[in-house]
Design a protein around this nucleic acid. Sequence first.
DNA 1: TAGATTGTTAATCGATTAACAATC
DNA 2: TAGATTGTTAATCGATTAACAATC
Lengths: 214, 214
Amino acid sequence: MSKTLISSPVIKRLPRYYRFLGELEKQDVIRISSRELSEKMGLTASQIRQDLNCFGGFGQQGYGYNVSTLRKSIGEILGVDSKNKTILIGAGNLGKAIARHIDFPKRGFELIGIFDSNPEKTGTTISDVNVLHIDDIQRFCNEHNPVCAVLCIPREAAEDITSRLIALGIKGFWNFSHYDLRIDHDDSIVVVNVHLTDSLMTLSYGLNSALNQN
Amino acid sequence: MSKTLISSPVIKRLPRYYRFLGELEKQDVIRISSRELSEKMGLTASQIRQDLNCFGGFGQQGYGYNVSTLRKSIGEILGVDSKNKTILIGAGNLGKAIARHIDFPKRGFELIGIFDSNPEKTGTTISDVNVLHIDDIQRFCNEHNPVCAVLCIPREAAEDITSRLIALGIKGFWNFSHYDLRIDHDDSIVVVNVHLTDSLMTLSYGLNSALNQN
DNA sequence: TAGATTGTTAATCGATTAACAATC
DNA sequence: TAGATTGTTAATCGATTAACAATC
């Protein structure tokens, strides 16, 4: 399968397109031009056309883009119809909230197990997913072959757990631990680091700049 | 106060520097050169020197950077010692987890109130912060003058709440709602959108690309 | 057809990297 | 001092924007 590599700024914008097109679809908008969409989204029409053309010609000259067709196409590109089997590690505050709050199936994931090192949590259920002890993870992975893991564990545990999970066949990591997961020299492993704390600190910077502006 | 505007890629890297320098400090590393740090962080020495020099000359020729001095300086730039009064709106799964999981004081924030529209939640406490009814927010803001708000509310509520909060003097928004908060034409308001779902979808894209690579 | 709007090439802008003189 | 490494300028690279011919 020869595909041109898409740049990361483009990929990061795709979910946003998907979201805005979903809104438009809800409002029964049938067609939209790159210019109209650019005004709604606060970017340039040029950029939208460039971005979309990375994946093919979704539009039609003189007409624009069909909202629901385009949304569907972007959804396919993002793989929202996949059912990537996913496990979540760490049933603390954040882990529980992610398990409950995120609509995994809608984004191409299927949450099939939650793991924690605290035996007291074992046996419970979080949004209908069983919480198992971390020691069961090898057996579980051999049996169910998950491809993706959500890491909601402390920094100290992250490095160790990650290498175990890679050995067990995990290919994708959604990392919330306060640790920079980096897998060099292996294109088959994909990592998205979230770093809520970093995000909060950029807000701190901006807020202090804004407050001290005058 | 004349300050050159720092570009957003630089600002987004600052918390990461801060984190790595913290690790080094823990390991009792006294000094580090831009080259050594670049290897640890997976970026170029040039970039590190460029980034740091946006804020002043923290290094010393022939020596490098003093780890703990540099960390402290970056912390000051990021405003980690501020005590920006902050409220959190929406005591659902995510709101509760954020309130419990994030160490606000360590990042320059002080969480002073949590608000929810559900009367059943009113009167409870989440990590020692009172949960109040959303109708109390005006009184509360007038009394305590918070400057920052964390939004953990559904998309439908976001737009309305935001404009109310702006009217009540909120200057910074950490937005977790599935809605793109954009404040145009007002530099005094700062927004950081988190969009966990978008993040998950970029993982979906990467994962599907990786899995279909061969 | 004429008008609108895309797809795509070319120009610009900004961010990253390289190079090196200054200096500890 | 000599060696190391910064601060900073210049070169490169990539991403965004502008322009316009193609075409619905």
